[in-house]
Design a protein around this nucleic acid. Structure first.
Lengths: 216, 216, 216, 216
DNA sequence: CATGAATGAGCCTTCATTCAT
DNA sequence: CATGAATGAAGGCTCATTCAT
């Protein structure tokens, strides 16, 4: 599953894991506070609990830290999501549950997500696609649930629309974080969740015409 | 209503306008390419067609360029929008037209919008609210149309939901740009527009229950 | 008497005089506040009441302003001194008067004098000697009074010592200004003057041995 | 008693001492030649024998170099003085010795002292008082010797006059350096020393009236 | 493996000076 | 004569990265 690794000078895999955990933890809180560009490698090293020399034993370039951070955040979101909705079968009830669970994760990790959205563009041309792929995987989780709902007859939505709705759901989760300045003064998380679920489901439940553009 | 910030050393207002136009144009294309932080002031000056010394006759700090750019982008989007949908009365037809017009603007200005979304966080604590206010104004344009539709009986949506839908529309416009890597390989702009309009309207047209949580 | 002039582009001598007066006045207050190096030519122009372009019609380089300022300060001190003690004949009474008058001038112009002492080193290699010559002229005024006192028998001091005492008096006048942080919290100007006069005169009045090293 | 200011990024105290010594040595010779403002940080680094980056590992701002230089010069002068006259008991003989020793130091360090007098004003508002305090300490060394002479009956001078004479002595030492253009072409150091000692002592040795304004 | 001193390219910004109007 | 916009060399300072210990 690992695509592009960040090579380390150190060989001890256990140590690599340990140090990188420290590193990511320190870096996230710094990036949250001042962004990737305004954070220095020395600060990262200090926040990680080791020296600048040691930092460079586990990465090659500052950008590697960003990659590691993004990677970690995605994994965390995905793991949380998988754990919460993984085994559910695909009906509208489980869709509602998935959305609400996803929104909850996004609420808890809004700082991290914000960081990622603002700094992802600083990833190298090689790393970006890998990160985007992870994002797509998550969108596909929603798409799959929607497909199940179609298959079991609860909904009738074409493939293209399903894909779009999955994206919408995904973005609406992020919105809660990156538009917090507007949304979180208007709604509680519960209100927001209910309203968005309503928006998503209302149009889908009974409209057979949606199928007519379903196409592969 | 006009730029409350960014004083210039030069007195001639006409010149300021001219030079800042050059500056914004040059800066946007650079920010697009490499982001605000990776762009140097000298590059901005060169891309603007004048010397670094001259650049600093029209701004005080590098950050001012970013503010000017954001300010300009918002004004352009808003002006385009006002021109397109300004006089329309508020019915669902005009809502569709507004959305489709807005998406079109976002499509044309996707580079600029992308820049703004990735770099806005680099604005100073003082400038950010001013920029966010401009964004809210645009969201409110959609909210007003929705309200008109409610008033003329075409739709029945509560205030809170109306606000949320306005945000959704707004973000869906941006999505087209900042998720282009996923969306633009799945849909044409027209498809995307139609599907999103459908999503927005389907749930609203006939469902009187929406009103029950309408509250002021 | 004019040694090295600062050339101006402007021909009208009356105008040159006027503009340079404005300039010196503005510059002195700026130099007082922030020193020569930290003062910009634009600031000088503004404080002088005209534009930066006009400033450069009356000087060639920023340094010229410093020269003009130093020149002016010396002239003022010397004129004041000449006026006060010029016609007095040379006895110890007139020496006391001269010292006390000189100290009074230095008290009134302490800011200006401070400026000169701190910034004179920034004068060009060509201008400095000219300024130092002016200083020597003033030292010589004290020397001459001392010589008169010797000639009329009131004092008996050799030439070399007379020269040194003249320097001492001169420096003691400056001290009052540039060591104000220490002296002016210990003495009033009158106390300071009386004590220093006492110091100077006591050793001189009755000690014939001083003459033995008097030599021409 | 030691440097309360100027933090370094480097931890090794021995290294700090070493590097700062290099730095001060290089900086003094540059300041001598062209003054603080005309000396660039890069020049200081080069004259110190290391890179600009390393320079900034040991200071925070250019101004810190000036502070370090002033601090060092004072310490050197004071240490020399303490070593030379430290144990002497306070009689007129030891006063003569102290003056002559002090003048000798000032002769040897005239470049450094000149630098300090011309550049001290560029010190920050916080550093200046600290430097002035050091100067006062040295003045007080002379004052103490004078007081001893009064106490053992050799001299009769009031407190206020003692303080002034101490200042006079101190300034006369500096004069030798900063008025070298005039004095050193008139006198040898020995002549200058003898004449000034004579000036100082003559008025003091036998004049009981001085005491009448002795006051605490 | 860990450390942290050293490096220097490169950034933002200032400001003396010029010159067309 | 007066103006002030334009210029660009130069300065202070930062920080990612390396490497000897």
């Amino acid at each position: 599953m690992r695509k592009q690794n960040v090579p380390a000078s150190v060989k001890d895999e256990r140590l690599i894991e340990l140090r990188r955990n420290q590193m990511i933890k320190g870096a996230v809180s710094l990036f949250k506070e001042k962004g990737f560009h305004r954070t220095t490698t020395r600060e990262i090293a200090k926040a990680s609990g080791f020296s600048i020399g040691t930092l460079y034993e586990y990465i090659r370039k500052k950008e590697d830290v960003l990659y590691l951070v993004c990677d970690r955040i995605y994994d965390q979101v995905r793991d949380r999501l998988k754990k919460d909705i993984g085994t559910k079968c695909g009906n509208t009830e489980s869709l509602k549950y998935a959305i609400s669970s996803y929104f909850k994760v996004m609420d808890e990790m809004q700082d991290e997500v914000l960081v990622m959205y603002q700094e992802a563009k600083s990833l190298s041309k090689e790393d970006l696609p890998y990160v985007l792929k992870k994002e797509l995987e998550m969108v596909e989780m929603f798409e799959e649930i929607l497909t199940s709902c179609v298959e079991n007859g609860e909904l009738s939505v074409g493939l293209k629309e399903r894909k779009l709705i999955a994206h919408n759901i995904f973005v609406q989760g992020q919105m809660w974080g990156f538009r917090r300045w507007a949304l979180q003064r208007l709604y509680t998380l519960e209100e927001y969740t209910d309203l968005q679920i309503q928006n998503v489901l209302e149009g889908l439940s009974k409209n057979p015409q949606n199928l007519k553009e379903g196409n592969e």
